[in-house]
Amino acid sequence: MEVVDIAQRLIAGSTLVKQGAEGRAYRCDLLPSPLMVQSSSRACEDEASRRDPPASITILLKHRFPKRYRHPSLDSQLTRQRLTSEARALVRCIKAGVSVPALRLVDARQGCLGMEWIDGWTVRELLGGGQEDDQVPSTRDDGQASRVGHDLEAMGIDEDEMLAAVGRQIAKMHLADIIHGDLTTSNLMVRKAGAHPGSPSPDLVLIDFGLSSSSPMPEERAVDLYVLERAFASTHPVLPGTAPHFERVLQGYKEGMQQGRKGEWERVEKRLEEVRMRGRKRSMVG
């Protein structure tokens, strides 16, 4: 069977979960190969175990479909480069101890990337930012932003610890010289309790490295943080008397960066202030 047939069969048997400008994301059940089944059967002495093949695993299948507005050879080259870059970023993050989805399948030729399916919620959902296609957060009768999210206390999730975990994971990623490129609360997930035994609580996972790059520069790290700060400010306004979400994220980030080389946090902090200043000037000018 040709590779193209395998990719198309996987997509045909999957469920579309998200449509984007660059690609589509599917939920897919990946069946074990015949060799795995045969090896398992030979290793099993129990008759019942021999009859039952290994269970399928659920993955997130990301497909970068061809872009008709680009020349076919250029489109193929760009797709392969971006998919390979995303796969490498995930592998480097895993080696550095960053909590990211495990890599299950890479088919650069067909633009397919298979990753571990994360059973949980995005931080956007947990904090009441609504679905990704919502235009504005909900408001109360007095015009102030309301926080219609999950009951974190009932779910056993401490909000302060969750936000600090966000900062610590980003710090690990930056110390591995990986820049995410699209840090928003939709690209931060918390696994459901028990979905990953032995993991800390809350189990925070960074997802969607499609725009990632590699850089050790404090400027790049600061821009990454500024993008997330703007995402929190626009999507998750806080109630009066409550500390901004990003302040708690930044505290966790500081703790994580101090585990690296001396002065790493101070260099990023200085650059972040400069990036903020440029952002404010741009807003004033329009």
Rank of each mutant, 00 (worst) to 15 (best):
Q144A: 13
E269W: 14
H180R: 14
T185N: 05
R248F: 03
E247T: 11
E266C: 05
D134R: 15
E274A: 13
C44K: 12
L74K: 08
L103W: 07
V249D: 09
S213I: 03
E161G: 06
D224A: 07
V4G: 09
A193V: 11
K67W: 11
L183D: 01
C93P: 01
Q169C: 04
A193D: 10
L188N: 04
Y69A: 08
Q169I: 04
G23H: 04
V285W: 12
M217W: 10
I178D: 00
L10V: 00
E247Y: 07
L113V: 10
L228K: 06
L204R: 01
E159Q: 12
E266Q: 11
G114L: 03
V285L: 14
Q81V: 14
S56I: 05
R24Y: 02
V285I: 14
M155E: 14
E229K: 01
A48Y: 13
A195M: 07
P32S: 12
R248I: 13
S213M: 07
G241K: 03
G130W: 13
R42M: 08
L127R: 02
V91R: 13
K262S: 14
A171D: 04
V148K: 14
N187R: 00
F246I: 11
K270Q: 11
E132A: 10
G252N: 06
G256A: 08
S199D: 09
Y253P: 01
L60I: 07
C44R: 13
S85E: 12
D107C: 08
G198E: 14
A7T: 05
L90R: 03
V136Y: 09
P137I: 09
K192A: 09
E125G: 10
R261N: 12
A243L: 06
D134W: 15
H174M: 05
H71I: 08
I207Q: 01
S99G: 01
G256D: 06
A89R: 02
S199E: 06
A89L: 06
S73E: 15
D151M: 05
P34L: 10
H63C: 02
G114F: 04
M115Q: 15
S199R: 07
I118S: 08
L83I: 15
I207T: 03
R24M: 08
H71G: 06
V190M: 05
R80L: 05
G279D: 11
P218I: 02
R278E: 15
V136S: 05
I57K: 04
G120F: 02
D46K: 06
V123Q: 04
L74D: 06
D133Y: 11
K254P: 02
Q110G: 04
G167H: 02
L183E: 00
G241E: 00
